[in-house]
Design a protein around this nucleic acid. Sequence first.
RNA 1: GCGCGGGUAGCUUAGUCGGUUGGAGCACCCGGCUGAUAACCGGGAGGUCGCAGGUUCAAGUCCUGCCUCGCGCACCA
Length: 1095
Amino acid sequence: MAQPNAAGELNAVALETALLEAWKQENAFQASIDSRSNGAPFIFLEGPPTANGKPGIHHVVARAYKDLVCRWKTMEGFQVNRKGGWDTHGLPVEIEVQKRMDLMSKEAIEAYGMDNFNQACRESVWTYESAWREMTERMAYWVDLDNPYVTLENNYVESCWWALKQMFDKGLLYRGHKVLPYCPQTGTSYSSHEVALGYKEVEEPSVYVKFKLTDDDASILAWTTTPWTLPGNVGLAVGPEVTYVRARVTEAAENWSGPGGAEVDEIVILAKDLMKEVLRHNVEVLEEFPGSSLVGRSYEPLFPDAVPRNGSETAWTVLEADWVTTTDGTGVVHTAVMYGEDDYNLGMAAGLPAYHTVGMDGAFIEGTHPELDGRYVKDCDQTVIELLSTAGGSNGKGPESGLLYREKAYLHDYPHCWRTGHPLLYYAMDSWFVRMTAVKERLLEFNDGVEWAPDWVGEGRFGEWLRNVKDWAISRERYWGTPLPVWRSESGEMKCIGSIEELQKEVAKATAAGFENPPCPDDVDLHRPVVDAFTLVDDNGTPMVRETFVMDCWFDSGCAPFAQWHHPFDGGESFNQSFPVDYICEGVDQTRGWFYTLLAVSTTVFDKPAYKRCLSLGLILDAEGKKMSKSKGNIVDPWDHFNREGADATRWYMVTAGAPWNPLKFDPNGVRETYAKMFLTLWNIYKFHADYAALDGFDPEASTSAVEDRPTLDRWILSRLASTAKAYHDDFVGWNYHKACRDLEDFVVNDLSNWYVRRSRRRLWDDAESADKLACQHTLHEVLTTVCKLMAPVSPFMVDVIHRNLTGETVHQAAWPLGTPGSIEGATSDEWDKEAAAATAVLPPQNIDLEASMALVRELAEVGRRIRVDAGRRQRLPCAQGWIVAGPALTEFHGILAEELNVEIINVEQDLDRFQRIELAPNFRALAPKARADVNAVANEIKSSADPEALLASIQAGDCEIMGVKIEMADVELRRAEREGFAASTVQIGQGENASQISLVLDMNDAPELLSKGLARDITRRIQAKRKTLNLEIEATIDLEIWMKDAPELYAADRQWVVTETRAAAAVFHLEGETPAEQSETFEVDGTTVWFTVA
RNA sequence: GCGCGGGUAGCUUAGUCGGUUGGAGCACCCGGCUGAUAACCGGGAGGUCGCAGGUUCAAGUCCUGCCUCGCGCACCA
């Protein structure tokens, strides 16, 4: 039943692993869900990790917060299903496999065979699955890993296809030709959120190039940071409103270093504002004119044979573009149609020839220039510069000094491939897009409805992202992913397939029309190359082949809310009941990732938001504040802590270390501290309770003890418990888990352990049954079980062991102490039903006055210790009297205080003057508005008054005026300083106008009785320490002998006290002067030497 | 460059509506207390509250600028 067993010594790791086994046996996770089968649903959605890498401590953090909320909501009565999930597609998987199999190009993959390659990917995905599972189980993240959603499974892919077809049918999915960031190594383009992952600061050569006008002996200067795009140049863009100058070089430049240059009398054209920046020669301005007057002028191609004119009238002429600025460069933008978004748009509008000078492999196409052909463009920067700076220039027609004016190293952030680290090339290519720009308003609207934690991520970072939303480039020229389900005929007709059944029909139709097709069974693998093999037919009878792309893998995870259920093919019920989801939680790095794609998909497919609440977690840094990364080798292995301090301490540490959204500096030492402080303390409280409860056969259900009849101390801790629990819950609601847990830790360590339990120890030592002991047992039982419940969502192990032993039941099906509104009929997860909560809350009565009084008592106890230190009087030597001066009535605490202060009698004294004199201090808050600028002078008058008592009297009489300011009681604070001859100290209680002082005065006089008692305590303490070092049982008796020198008289009663306290069966107190035994221990206190033996 | 969030003791951090003496914890030193504790209590040392201005009788707190760290954004040629 519920009768506790003795606790035993703590071994946190053994405790946790044993409990894990028990949970497994009992199927505790499922049971906790089943126990809420009548509860309202609270929908959680797991962001699928990729099992392709080893889990690290940052994954533990994310999972801790996921688990915390799910467990908490379960305790509140909600039913919280938690389906696991795995992200299994995409580039990370492919790269991993490519590295392992040494297939570092697309050609290599294709030579190896796409089917073999994809099979390897499919298997590779599970490489670390067991590591993930072990970590997940060990940290007690309760999630269903036996029935997870897996993005590579046919059901999942089919749902993704269905979603794409919804977009297609709404006209939101389109094929386009755009300039996209492209990685020649991986052979694919990226969407903006992927590009964002790879910005790196790099220094590259930038060049100022002279474009020689055909009908004028002058050159236009243009600037570029990507010299490799120069062979593709077909136009120059100028701002029509920008002012340009025509400038003549008047003298040769001095100190010219590096390639390039200009001759005297050479004429250059550039924006007026940038002359200083750009030119390194002294020039004379010949003419100023707007950009518009340059438009239409033609210039000589830099690389005449690289791009064919193809009948273009506008090729190699000056064009106008309103986006040209003079913030850097020359005010003239070199335009290579295929390698810049603006360039492309301008080129299309102006009818420039659109030809690639660079292939998909990132190398120059044959025929660009003999020295460039076939070389990787990023390796050619220097070659291009050399070609341009050679006298005569690349086309052999340039001015004597060559076509390069100048080179300048340029430091900027440039996007790199997030997987391979190679620089991306902006490259015009075919791609598929989701028209996110068409639903921008809805995205913003839905985002407004999301409860973000912290709110500034939603309003700021995410909102900013949405306001600048771009169409989502979702296609990838890759192999391992959800295939784009679009088939296209040569005439451009397209079909989007939304299900296997539809595919089968279309295949059958095509087969009937005479096209050869492999079989398409119900379980046809929805991956490449299988789906590539199907040829469909359009209405005109022409064949359609699949667009060979696969999807951005972020699209997969964005489909999770419905694809996890195989919606709509499963009938739709699961999805309808769980959408939108209540809660998601991931690292802030998912803002542009999963947080976005979830919303992007739900908006385009359902016109609904995907989630109601989103907790965005801060990054995990190492103890030095550096980002954890494999390359730095500063990764913390969660198992280091699981195996040392345990998962409880690890989780508690992570939650208390700071706000969830702040970067967490993970300090291994902090975990240790948490263990030592929180969990060891909790265990010892529990052990204290359980050991005596077991000894006494205490059964909380077999006896009762009305709270109102319990001692003050008990009613106090119960009230503190209630107050702490309420604040804890409120902090949970406000996402301030760190505050909640810090305060609870403070409660456990300070209030419960260091005050309540310490003060209550003797109550339980008593062998006899008493109402007082019973009260203490019930109080401990109630406080401990409630603390267990509060902690259970955060650190689920130790509290379950404690709760089970104290109640016979698992804490993970227990009711939240603040109520279980989730279990109420008709409850929703959106609102906390206060009435329902109040009706189901289980908390002891609060008594704020009692808490305040006890806080004062504790402060007085500390004050007493301070007084003793100052006065040089040791703690064990009692004082005859103590006085509490002023302050509220504390009569019922006098017993506690007398013990804490080690005084014989506590007196209450109202006559302050007996011990103290007063001092007056200005109260600025009240004084300032009256005194204005004179406030400091007035304050000084008050502070430095020679006769504060007279001043006080005059203030009280209402006739005090200083510098024209009438001083009232509210304007001053009364302070006190003790007179000579008393050991005293004063504390202030309350704030502002309610502030008052309370003083403690101790009698420092000695008396023989006091010296005797003090000595007895010192002797006892030493013997107890000896017993402890001897490792004696608490019950064991000892034989005691004591010798003393220069000792005060030790009274018979005090000798007896020593004997009883130390459980001495036999005791000999030797007379002063006798020689102590050789093996005796000795100590000295206040001039008295004591020897003793314990046997 | 723009946006967001930080910068408080050697380290981790609290600091409400601006109120005159900026709190804790860890680590260090001294002392005390203890038959639950890797604990606890008192004291000490340790602070240019990132820097510089400004508002105010009064600024860690409000304003401006700057420095710095992190994150995010960015076609910037």
